[in-house]
C-alpha cells in the first residue's frame, strides 16, 4: 500500500484536514454516563492528547473508536467513513491501530510473533496454503517477517525479537505494543497512556519515538497523565471531566483554562 509522503517534522499544519471526527458521542453503563456528548476532531498529521482526571471517560472514548463498545448516541467518522457498527478488526483494517492502558501483549509468544499479529490482516494465506506450503505463502511469510523486524528495529527491540513477551522489561513491553500497532500500517495510532509506569529516561525516549512515528505521516491520538509529555508532544489537547468535554485547544491555552485547573485540583484533593 502506498503511503502519503511523510510530513517533515516541524512543518506546521497549514491546512487541517480532519482524519477522525467525533460528534456528540455518548455511552452509558447501567445508568452511569461514562461519555457524554463529546465532540472533537483529530487533524491529519497532528498529535492530539486526550487528558482528564481518572474516570473522566478517556479510555471509554478509545474503546468506542476501536469498536470495543457500541456508542449509545453520536457518530465517529474516520477518513470520511462512519465506524458505526463495524467490528474492531474491520476498524483496524481501515487504518486505526491502538495500544492498551494495561498492556495487553501475547505474553507467552515471542516478541517477533507479537509484531506479526499486526501484519496479519494484510496477509492472505489460509489453511490450505499453509499445509501445502505454497511458494506464495512462503514469500508472504518472509515479507511479513521482514516488516515485523523493521518495526522492531524502529522501536529498538530488534535484539529481543526471539525473547518471550512476558520476559521484557515494563517499558519494553509498552514499546512492543507500539511496534505491534505500527505493523498494521495505520493512518491513526491511538495510544492509551503510553508513558504509564515509565521512568523519566524511558519517557524521554518515548517522546522521541512519538516524534519519529509522526514523521512517518501517522496521526496520533493519545491519553496521557504525564504532563511534560503531553505539553511537548501534542499540538492540541482535549480535556474530559466526568464524561464531558470541558476544554479543547493548544496546550498552552488549555493549561491556563480555569475549568481545567479546577478539574485537576479537584481530582488532586480526592487523591
Amino acid at each position: 500500500m502506498m503511503e502519503a509522503p511523510p510530513i517533515v517534522s516541524g512543518q506546521p499544519n497549514t491546512v487541517s484536514i480532519p482524519l477522525l471526527v467525533i460528534q456528540e458521542l455518548t455511552k452509558t453503563f447501567g445508568g452511569l454516563t461514562a461519555v457524554n456528548a463529546v465532540s472533537f476532531a483529530v487533524e491529519k498529521g497532528s498529535v492530539v492528547g486526550l487528558i482528564g482526571p481518572n474516570g473522566a471517560g478517556k479510555t471509554t472514548v478509545f474503546n468506542l473508536i476501536t469498536g470495543n463498545y457500541r456508542p449509545d448516541r453520536g457518530r465517529i467518522e474516520f477518513g470520511g467513513t462512519p465506524l458505526a457498527g463495524l467490528r474492531t478488526h474491520r476498524i483496524i483494517a481501515l487504518g486505526i491501530a491502538r495500544t492498551f492502558q494495561n498492556i495487553r501483549l501475547f505474553q507467552r509468544l515471542t516478541v517477533l510473533e507479537n509484531v506479526l499479529a499486526g501484519c496479519h490482516y494484510r496477509m492472505r494465506g489460509g489453511i490450505l496454503a499453509a499445509m501445502l506450503r505454497l511458494p506464495s505463502q512462503r514469500r508472504e511469510e518472509n515479507d511479513g517477517m521482514g516488516r515485523a523486524l523493521k518495526e522492531l528495529e524502529f522501536v529498538g527491540l530488534r535484539q529481543q525479537a526471539l525473547a518471550l513477551a512476558k520476559n521484557l522489561a515494563y517499558g519494553d513491553q509498552r514499546r512492543l505494543e507500539i511496534a505491534r500497532a505500527l505493523a498494521t500500517q495505520p493512518r491513526l495510532l491511538v495510544l492509551d497512556e503510553p508513558a504509564g509506569g515509565m521512568n523519566e529516561q524511558e519517557t524521554e525516549a518515548l517522546i522521541g519515538l512519538i516524534a519519529r512515528i509522526r514523521e512517518r505521516g501517522i496521526t496520533i491520538l493519545l491519553i496521557e497523565h504525564d504532563m511534560r509529555l503531553v505539553m511537548r508532544a501534542c499540538e492540541k489537547l482535549v480535556v474530559l471531566e466526568n464524561g464531558g468535554k470541558i476544554a479543547e485547544g493548544a496546550p498552552e491555552q488549555v493549561r491556563r483554562d480555569p475549568k481545567v485547573i479546577e478539574a485537576y485540583l479537584g481530582a488532586d484533593d480526592e487523591a
Binding site: A97, R104, F106, Q107
Partner: peptide, 11 residues
Amino acid sequence: EDEVAAEGSGI
C-alpha cells in the same frame, strides 16, 4: 493469549 488484543491487532 488475549482475545481483545488479537481483535485489536486486526484479527
